[in-house]
Design a protein around this nucleic acid. Structure first.
Length: 130
RNA sequence: CGAGUCUGCCAGGCAGCUGCUGUCCAGAGAAAUGCCUACGUAGUAGGUGAUUCUCUGGAGGGAGGAAAGUCCGGGCUCCACAGGGCAAAGUGCCAGGUAACGCCUGGGCGGCGCGAGCCGACGGAAAGUGCAACAGAAAAUAUACCGCCUAAGUGUUUUCGAACACCGGUAAGGUUGAAAUGGUGCGGUAAGAGCGCACCGCAUGGCUGGUAACAGUCCAUGGCAUGGAAAACCCCACUCGGAGCAAGACCAAAUAGGGGUCCAACGGCGUGGCCCACGCUGGACCCGGGUAGGUCGCUUGAGGUGCACGGUGACGUGCAUCCCAGAUGAAUGGCUGUCCACGACAGAACCCGGCUUAUCGGCAGACUCACUAU
């Protein structure tokens, strides 16, 4: 398919989904303002979850802005990504980054995760039992 | 035209591409279920109504004036509750508005401003307890530091006239302070003092106006009594049960455990020397509680807009008309172009009424002051 949509199936919905990624993060991509953790999943597409803490970004408008841009980049890059669950964690300097810079940042970090996945693809038999 | 006051409104626009999330319409598919028909009494096949879910297409909607702080008030929900009282907390000029309020409107009083206007924890200090740094004589049953007065009494000095000290009188004058016990004038006096008088002020009672707060100063009375602070306690009047949508209601896997019915009643394990006996252990179905998860609550409301009427006004009444976010890892956006005044503060989470705080600017109306012109 070639439509760039972002339905609910592409998001992490339950607390358990997040716990999965935190407990065993197979891939990591860092930046002073952002941290991406990822783990291979059983779907045949990538999924996205956001952790934007109030103590890192003080105002609700700022949190909304950051979430929208991250989701937008994920939506546009979803067919270039392997089947992994990604959790994006905001760090404090994120509040001072403007929209254009944040877009570029996400492009780089998602590409980095893809490269890690190609170098070190998951062992399907072991991950299905775990 | 300049300076200013009050009230109301707006919150970058347009275009393209591309997302998210409710609603409605149409189509397709799936699920379990009700009804009807046939065979038949176990179920099978077909038709059909509504419901739910998924997908596709279309239409239309999608943050705020503060959504914020969570400071008040109410609705709603659950819990508690015969009735009454106390405590705690809050409010505090009067009248009205309201579902209610600590809000709003109108009025009174006090203060600020030339003015339009603005500001005001604005009940009680002769119920009681306590408080007031420093300064000052004295900070509340007033007081005598300086000053003023007096020379009767006591004493000292003496130029024998008197002078001075003590005692005594005095709140006019001085000094301190945020604040000092009515003001001015005349009389009065040893000097003074509401001691007396006049005027002003004050208090109490009456009268008049006003629903009232209060005002008038019209009359009488009182020489004046009651300094401040109630944001120290307190007194008086009034209001008040508690918790909050994670309220609360419903559906409900898997696993473990509980209750009941039926089947098997054979076997196994334990107690015991052995038998009997007792306890534990099996399968199927049903029931109740209830976790994950889901649904409802969840947006039609003290609702908006327009007109008419009543009211000084807040607001009320009637009619017409409109439906205007409802998310739940949590939507309401991203990118590009373009225009200009170059875009502030800032994001709904059950819902309303307020208050407070943040805020780039812009628009409209009413009014005030100053200047110029007529």
């Amino acid at each position: 398919m070639s439509t760039y949509e972002f339905p609910r199936s592409l998001r992490l919905l339950r607390p358990g989904d997040f716990r999965n990624v935190f407990e065993q993060a197979e891939y990591k991509a860092g930046h002073p303002a952002l941290l991406l953790l990822a783990r291979s999943n059983q779907c045949n597409h990538a999924r996205l979850g956001l952790v934007i803490a109030k103590r890192n970004i003080k105002f609700a408008t700022g949190r909304n802005r950051v979430k929208r841009i991250i989701r937008e980049q994920f939506r546009l890059k979803q067919y270039q990504l392997p089947a992994i669950d990604i959790v994006v964690i905001a760090r404090r300097p994120l509040a001072d980054i403007d929209n254009a810079e944040l877009h570029q940042c996400m492009v780089k970090l998602l590409a980095k995760l893809s490269r890690q996945y190609e170098k070190n693809p998951p062992d399907r038999s072991s991950s299905s039992t775990a």
